[in-house]
Design a protein around this nucleic acid. Structure first.
Length: 634
RNA sequence: GCCGAAAUAGCUCAACCAGGUAGAGCAACUGACUUGUAAUCAGUAGGUUGCGGGUUCAAUUCCUGCUUUCGGCACCA
C-alpha cells in the first residue's frame, strides 16, 4: 500500500494501518500534533484505518481546519457537561461558527442563566481532564433511531438524512452524539475554552418551531489565543456605536420613540458632511435630485404592490376619511415624478436621486442602535434606461461605489442575488438576461463577487455591497437592484427612435444604504476617532493661561473659523492637563496648546489625536495643512 | 414577534441575595488656585429607584402587568 504525502513524498506499508500509526512512522512528534487527517481529500479521524493506496495530509494544531475540529469537539464536550448536570436535556444541533461554536439544547422546564455558565465550564473541564477517547462508529439507520429514541430532535435529523448517507455516531465517556465528524482523538485537547452567552433559538431556524436554549462558546489550542480573542471581544464592546454615540454626544434614543433616533448637534455634523459629500458626488455624476413626500395615499401603495406585500411594516394614518401610508420606500414617489413628463430615449440614462426618509415598523426585537431603526434616510436613486445600457450603467455604479467606500477605508464584497425559486414575477428569459447583464458588468471589470442563488427580490436580481464592521458583522449597505416590476405596474414609458412607446428598464440603487446605519458603522470603524473632514469638532484650542494667552487664542479661533474649520476654545479656569484630557477623550483630531511661545512667535503648537509628539508651525502653515486634509477627506 | 437578562443622580456604578423610604466617582454649580500636553483642592446641589398594581406595619429590595434596553433567534423589498 502506497501513501502519498504532501510535497511528493511517499511511504510504503505492508499492511493496513491507522492514520495514527502512519503519523507515528513518519515521526512521533507528528503523531502527537496531529488532530485529524485529510485522506484522499476528505477530513477524517486519526483512528481511521487506511487499507488501500491513498493520499494523506496530517492536520496539526497549526492548521485552521484543526481549530474547527477543536471547536466542534468542544460543542460535544459542552453537551456532555449539560447532560451530566441536566440528565433530562435533549439536544438539537451543535455546529462550529466563525469564532467558536454553539449547542442548541432543550432543557424542559429548566432555565439557564449566565450564572450557570461557569458551573457548566467547570464540568466541562472536569470531563476533559479525564481524557476520554472520542470514537467514531458507523451505524445503520435502525440502530441510530434506536440509540437516539429518547432524543426527538436527533430522530428528526436521522429521518431526514438521505438514504445513501453513512450515519456515524461519536462516543466519548458518557456521551454519544449523532455526528458527521471528524473529531479530536480525545477530550484532553480541550483546555482553553470559554462559554460566552446564552440565547433562545428556534429549532431549525423556523419561528413556527419551539425555541431551544443556545449556549455559545469558543475554544483555542493555546491560552494566549483564547485570551487574545477575549480581549478582542472587549475591544469591540468599547467600539460599540451605542456607547460611543453617548460619549461623543452624537445621537440619542428615547422610550417615547423606540427605533427613532434623535440626532444631537455633533451627530448632525456627521450627517451633514455625509449628505453634502453625497450631493456633490451625485451632481458631478449627472444625477438629478428630487424629494418626494413622506406620506402618500393608500391607492399608490396598492399600485406599487406594497399594500399587498409590505403592509405589516407600514405606518398608516387616516386623514379626511382617506387612508394614507408613510413611505417605507421611495420608489413609488419616484415613479410619479417620472410619469409627470414624457421621456425620450435621448434622456437616458436618466438618473434621479433622493435622500428620502422612510419609516418601517421593524419587529421590536430587531431594533439595535443605529444599525436597525424604524426611520432612516435612504440615499436612493432610480436610473431609467434601455436594456442595452444595463452593463455600462452597472459598471459606472460599481466604480462609484468603490470610490465612495474607499474614502472611508471600508472593506466590502459584492454578492449577486438571482431569481428566487418560486416567488418571482416576469419571464424566466428576462431574468436570465438581467442576471447575465449584472454578471457581465462585474466580470468585464475584473470585479470578484459571490453568487447568492435564489436570493434576489421577487421583482429582479440585485447586487449587494456587504461591508464588514468591527464586530465582524456583515452589513448590507449598498445595493443595486434591477426592477422589472414597478415600470410595469406604473406603466412607465419612453419614446424610442422610431417614435414608439417602450417600457424602460429601471435600477434602484443605494450607496450608504441608510445614512443612520452607515454612521453606526463609521462610528465603530473609526472607534469614534473620525477623520478630520467629518469630525464634529476638528480643532480644540487650549490657552495655557487665560490671563496671558486667551486673547491670542481667540484671534486664532477667529482665523480658523473664517476658513470654515470647526473649532472650539476651552477657556475654563482649569489645569492644562485637565483640558487636554478632555480634548483627548472627545477624540478631537487636533488640539492646539497656546502659551507664551506661540503668542511670541505667531505659531501654533498642535498635537494630532492618537499621537504624542507636539509640532510647532506658523499658524498659516497649520491652516493650509488642515484645509488640505479636509479637502482630501482624510 | 419569540427566548433569556436588565432598568437606581446627567454618566459609570453600589445598596437588593437574607425588606427598615438610597451612596460613591465623574459631570454640573460656588469659591480658592493661574497652570506647558490625559483628572488641583474645598464646598453645594442633584433621586416619586422606568411606569402601574399587589404582598407587608414597612418595598429600590419580594410577586405581577406594561414600557424600554441588552444578548441571541426569527425578520430585514
Amino acid at each position: 500500500m502506497i501513501i502519498n504525502l504532501p510535497g511528493g513524498n511517499q511511504r510504503e506499508f505492508d499492511s493496513e494501518k491507522s492514520l495514527f500509526d502512519i503519523a507515528n512512522e513518519i515521526s512521533p512528534s507528528l503523531k502527537k500534533r496531529s488532530i485529524v487527517a485529510r485522506l484522499n481529500g476528505k477530513l477524517v479521524d486519526m483512528d481511521t484505518v487506511v487499507t488501500t493506496d491513498s493520499s494523506v495530509e496530517f492536520i496539526t494544531t497549526d492548521d485552521p481546519e484543526a481549530l474547527e475540529v477543536l471547536r466542534h469537539s468542544s460543542a460535544h464536550l459542552l453537551a456532555e457537561a449539560i447532560k451530566t448536570l441536566y440528565p433530562h436535556a435533549h439536544f438539537g444541533v451543535g455546529p462550529v461558527i466563525e469564532d467558536g461554536f454553539y449547542y442548541d439544547i432543550d432543557l424542559g422546564e429548566d432555565i439557564l442563566s449566565e450564572k450557570d455558565l461557569p458551573i457548566i465550564e467547570k464540568e466541562m473541564a472536569k470531563i476533559a481532564s479525564q481524557n476520554s477517547k472520542i470514537e467514531r462508529e458507523v451505524v445503520s439507520k435502525e440502530q441510530a433511531l434506536e440509540l437516539f429514541k429518547d432524543d426527538p430532535y436527533k430522530v428528526e435529523l436521522i429521518n431526514e438524512l438521505p438514504e445513501s448517507e453513512e450515519i456515524s455516531i461519536y462516543k466519548q465517556a458518557h456521551f454519544t452524539d449523532l455526528c458527521r465528524g471528524p473529531h479530536l482523538p480525545g477530550t484532553k485537547w480541550i483546555k482553553n475554552f470559554k462559554l460566552l452567552s446564552l440565547a433562545g433559538a428556534y429549532w431549525r431556524g423556523n419561528s413556527d418551531n419551539v425555541q431551544l436554549t443556545r449556549v455559545y462558546g469558543t475554544a483555542f489550542f493555546t491560552k494566549e489565543e483564547l485570551d487574545e480573542h477575549l480581549n478582542l471581544l472587549e475591544e469591540r464592546k468599547k467600539r460599540d456605536h451605542r456607547k460611543l454615540g453617548k460619549q461623543l454626544d452624537l445621537f440619542m434614543l428615547s422610550e417615547y420613540g423606540p427605533g427613532f433616533p434623535f440626532w444631537l448637534p455633533n451627530g448632525m455634523i456627521l450627517r451633514r458632511e455625509l449628505e453634502s459629500f453625497w450631493y456633490d458626488v451625485h451632481l458631478k455624476e449627472g444625477y438629478k435630485l428630487i424629494q418626494t413626500p413622506i406620506m402618500l395615499n393608500k391607492e399608490l401603495w396598492e399600485i406599487s404592490g406594497h399594500w399587498a406585500n409590505y403592509r405589516e411594516n407600514m405606518y398608516t394614518s387616516t386623514i379626511d376619511d382617506m387612508e394614507f401610508a408613510i413611505k417605507p420606500m421611495n420608489c413609488p414617489g419616484g415613479m410619479l415624478v417620472y410619469k409627470r413628463d414624457i421621456h425620450s430615449y435621448k434622456d437616458f440614462p436618466l438618473k434621479v436621486g433622493e435622500l428620502g426618509l422612510v419609516h418601517r415598523h421593524e419587529a421590536s426585537g430587531a431594533l439595535n442602535g443605529l444599525f436597525r431603526v424604524r426611520n432612516f434616510t435612504q440615499d436612493d436613486a432610480h436610473i431609467f434606461m434601455t436594456e442595452d445600457m444595463i452593463v455600462q450603467e452597472i459598471r459606472e455604479l460599481v466604480r462609484l461605489f468603490d470610490y465612495m467606500y474607499k474614502v472611508f477605508n471600508l472593506e466590502y464584497h459584492i454578492e449577486l442575488s438571482t431569481r428566487p425559486e418560486d416567488k418571482f414575477i416576469g419571464k424566466v428569459e428576462t431574468w436570465d438576461r438581467a442576471e447575465k447583464a449584472l454578471a457581465d458588468a462585474l466580470e468585464s471589470m475584473g470585479q470578484d463577487y459571490k453568487l447568492n442563488p435564489g436570493d434576489g427580490a421577487f421583482y429582479g436580481p440585485k447586487l449587494d455591497f456587504k461591508l464588514k464592521d468591527s464586530m465582524k458583522r456583515i452589513w448590507q449597505c449598498g445595493t443595486i437592484q434591477l426592477d422589472m416590476n414597478l415600470p410595469e405596474r406604473f406603466d412607465l414609458t419612453y419614446i424610442d427612435s422610431n417614435g414608439e412607446k417602450q417600457r424602460p428598464v429601471m435600477l434602484h440603487r443605494a450607496l450608504y444604504g441608510s445614512i443612520e446605519r452607515f454612521i453606526g458603522i463609521l462610528i465603530e470603524h473609526y472607534a469614534g476617532a473620525f477623520p478630520t473632514w467629518i469630525s464634529p469638532v476638528q480643532v480644540k484650542v487650549i490657552p495655557v493661561n487665560n490671563e496671558y494667552h486667551l486673547e491670542y487664542a481667540k484671534t486664532l479661533v477667529g482665523e480658523l473659523k473664517d476658513q470654515g474649520i470647526r473649532v472650539e476654545i476651552d477657556e475654563r479656569d482649569e489645569k492644562l492637563g485637565y483640558k487636554i484630557r478632555e480634548a483627548q477623550t472627545k477624540k478631537i483630531p487636533y488640539q492646539l496648546v497656546i502659551g507664551d511661545k506661540e503668542v511670541e512667535s505667531g505659531q501654533v503648537n498642535y498635537r494630532r489625536y492618537g499621537e504624542q509628539n507636539q509640532v510647532a508651525v506658523p499658524t498659516y502653515e497649520f491652516i493650509e495643512m488642515i484645509l488640505a486634509e479636509i479637502k482630501e477627506k482624510k
